[in-house]
Amino acid sequence: MRKIVQSHATEFALLAVIALISLFLSLATDRFFTLGNAFDLLNTSSVNIIFAVGLLVVLIAGGIDISFAVAASVVQYVAALLLESIGGGGWFSGLLIAAILGVALGAINALLIHRFKIISIVATIATFNIYFGLLMFFTRGVSIYNLPDWLTSRVILFEHEMADGSWVEITLPVLIMVACVISTWVLITRTTTGRQLYAFGDNPEGARRFGINVGGMQFIAFGWLGLMAGIAGLVQAHYAQEVVPNALYGRELDVLAAVVLGGARLGGGKGTVLGCVLGVLMISITQNGLNLMGVSPFAFKMIIGAIILVAITLSNTNIERLLPFMREGSRR
């Protein structure tokens, strides 16, 4: 048990913070602690969680990406146009198109970083500007409202009315999110490629000496994030029932904060899917709670900023220092 707590210190710290916040919110509002609200939260967080697990892979491999949210907007827009040109399509063709476009945009980042040796933050700030500039230039900021019917109609996979009158719903975005989370988890913990990504992020020179394909690692990491961003883009269009070119602008920093909060390290080699999901959930829970409490949305950002600081401090502090009883008998 001690071993588990030690090796998952961040996750436990986050769980504790989430529990505290939830406790506070359920005392402060009567709507928070309902199953209906919990599922609402999952539905609204799906897009960010999909982004987050993609970004996690890039962070583990020692990179960073600023461009993925804007890339998702590009994917939305181009996918909407392509779908129209093929006469509508469906979920399958939609996801396929979004995935291919996303991977292509991610591969551009990988190419800049690997081939032209541009550090990832600079390369992706550049592509962030290029993608966004192109998008605004070609769309002139005009949104698309007439999306295919399949994309705009809500797909409810499971619903149930609770005794208190609230609805428990599982929607398609949640299913897609779960699939993304599980496949990312399988990739980074269960496959040799995933472990190579960790090793590469942890000690690039060491990985190189083992003959790990360094360029391949960049393409896999950024390609995976591109894939997730493409999917997230389509899911977001479905959720919002429209494509607005600047709808996702700025989302990258929220997601980045959540992923780092979840224990991923800027610099590579560290991070878990569970931590990353908890990081996103913690921020959404706070946002949702503040909403229910009727706090002004202008105060949101401030409070969330403060919570990120507190949570990061907690999870960076050695858990053994917080729980002195664990120090006994632990290794020298």
Partner: peptide
């Protein structure tokens, strides 16, 4: 953990 193609660990 090495090798070109992904395998399960």
């Amino acid at each position: 953990l090495l090798g070109r193609w992904p395998r399960f660990v």
